[in-house]
């Protein structure tokens, strides 16, 4: 994972240096986008394969035979995954902070906070999907799909607001808006523009509130699924 991060950072700096001007800004944007995506994929793969391995090796059966409640099991694993997400966010945030240290405009604090929130939500979603879906590939793809939908949701809602001349648009727009109720707004939580221009307008209240509500949503959903399973 560390090698991938170093490679991503190096490649971003190299690509940024080829721009005829604003080379630093290019490096910030490429590095932050690349490391963010690598971090998300790393968390998803680790979480999904860890949970599925627990099921496959019957570790979960053994743990639940001990005096541990199913809620306790879920909460302890959620906290552990949040810990891993936090470490990764700290490493990536630190690397980006060092890169942007000479920039007067970069709002690095809010960007790092948003990155941490994004990683926490992704880890909770990955845990939920890995418990619900029996195949690690399906769990990985489902979580990545949710992540991509979360990044694109702002754009999709904008298309709905602008209106499209097509058959079934009204029905599809209602479906999309209902789906968007439980999809994380990753496009709002972390923006590369904050590193270039600062001027972040996102309120801390929204960032924290949105992240906590989704964390609770996915955690409780995983708990309900575990409650319904027979071991």
């Amino acid at each position: 994972m560390l090698c991938t991060l170093v490679a991503g950072l190096s490649l971003s700096i190299f690509m940024g240096s080829s721009a005829i001007n604003e080379s630093d800004q290019f490096s910030y944007v490429f590095a932050s986008s690349a490391l963010r995506f690598i971090g998300v994929v790393g968390i998803i793969l680790f979480t999904v394969f860890y949970v599925r391995r627990m099921y496959d090796r019957k570790d979960i059966d053994y743990m639940l035979s001990r005096p541990i409640s199913r809620l306790g099991f879920i909460v302890s694993h959620t906290v552990a995954f949040i810990g891993i997400a936090s470490i990764l966010a700290f490493v990536i945030g630190g690397a980006i902070a060092i890169m942007t240290i000479s920039s007067e405009n970069a709002d690095i604090f809010l960007w790092c906070l948003g990155l941490w929130a994004e990683f926490v939500i992704v880890s909770a979603a990955a845990m939920f999907f890995s418990m619900v879906l029996s195949s690690p590939a399906a769990g990985t793809l489902a979580t990545i799909g949710l992540y991509v939908l979360g990044r694109m949701m702002g754009n999709l809602l904008g298309v709905i607001d602008a209106g499209v001349d097509m058959t079934g648009f009204s029905f599809l727009s209602i479906v999309m808006q209902v789906v968007s109720l439980i999809v994380p707004r990753f496009d709002l939580l972390v923006q590369s523009g904050w590193l270039v221009y600062g001027d972040a307008t996102l309120s801390l209240f929204f960032m924290v509130g949105h992240s906590v509500s989704l964390l609770v949503l996915f955690t409780v959903a995983a708990w309900i699924d575990l409650q319904r399973k027979q071991f």
């Binding site: 690509m15 721009a19 800004q25 290019f26 944007v29 490429f30 754009n155 923006q191 270039v196």
Partner: peptide, 15 residues
């Protein structure tokens, strides 16, 4: 192309 990241889209297409 940049899964919703405006600044990334700008820089990628610019390059």
């Amino acid at each position: 192309f940049s899964i919703g990241d405006k600044q990334m889209a700008y820089r990628s297409f610019g390059l």
